[in-house]
Design a protein around this nucleic acid. Sequence first.
DNA 1: TCGCTTCCCCTTGTCATGCGAGGGGTCTGG
DNA 2: CCAGACCCCTCGCATGACAAGGGGAAGCGA
Lengths: 114, 114
Amino acid sequence: MTDDSLNLLRGTVDLLILKSLTWEARHGYAISQWIDTATEGTLLMEEGTLYPALHRLDRKGWIESEWGLSANNRRAKFYQLTAAGRGRLDSEATSWQRYSDAVAKALANGGPRP
Amino acid sequence: MTDDSLNLLRGTVDLLILKSLTWEARHGYAISQWIDTATEGTLLMEEGTLYPALHRLDRKGWIESEWGLSANNRRAKFYQLTAAGRGRLDSEATSWQRYSDAVAKALANGGPRP
DNA sequence: TCGCTTCCCCTTGTCATGCGAGGGGTCTGG
DNA sequence: CCAGACCCCTCGCATGACAAGGGGAAGCGA
């Protein structure tokens, strides 16, 4: 942890979690590690953010859980995407794209009269 | 208003407002219009979001206000960046850049086994 | 064997803040 | 005269990221 990680923005938490489950089922701890790695240490998801989010996504039907055994031989709850979850991931990814493009445009704006 | 505008993410409100004041002082209404235009209608800042944010930025010393007359001959409160506000804009813009790059990386991630 | 670290799960309370709804006032054009 | 644009504000609600705190089990070195 280089400790220069940024705060998570509201809304991107779900997106990141769903994305981490694209290829295989993962347990919570592994999801947070994936985020750390995939963003090259830029983003850090705290446990107090992660677990409530997982339960929320579960309630909404985007993911499903199942108890199993981790690679380190520990009891762990594995989550996987549902069909609805995949759809959700797509739409959230699209929204994010639109959003970040819009902000980028605003920041690149050269002023009222170029 | 094409009504397909997205919700604002926590944290980007300040950034957008500060950016809108880069070149000249503007009043609240003009700021919201600038955001709408600069993002090509993608982002819409509600008044209930804008005005409290303006007062917050004022309290923090990033911006200063002054009553004046708008282009339409109306009473309007003009805001301008302070020196501290310019610094704040820079750091927020940098953070945003890092953040969106990180998310982009995560979304572009090809999975556990490239 | 003991204790430390890593791994893994969870909940509670706090705080910040985006937004809907509501309220007020002014100027202009049809 | 009146609709609509222009311009300002505040309240209350809901959401959700986070810190802090709690629990427990596996593995390893001393």
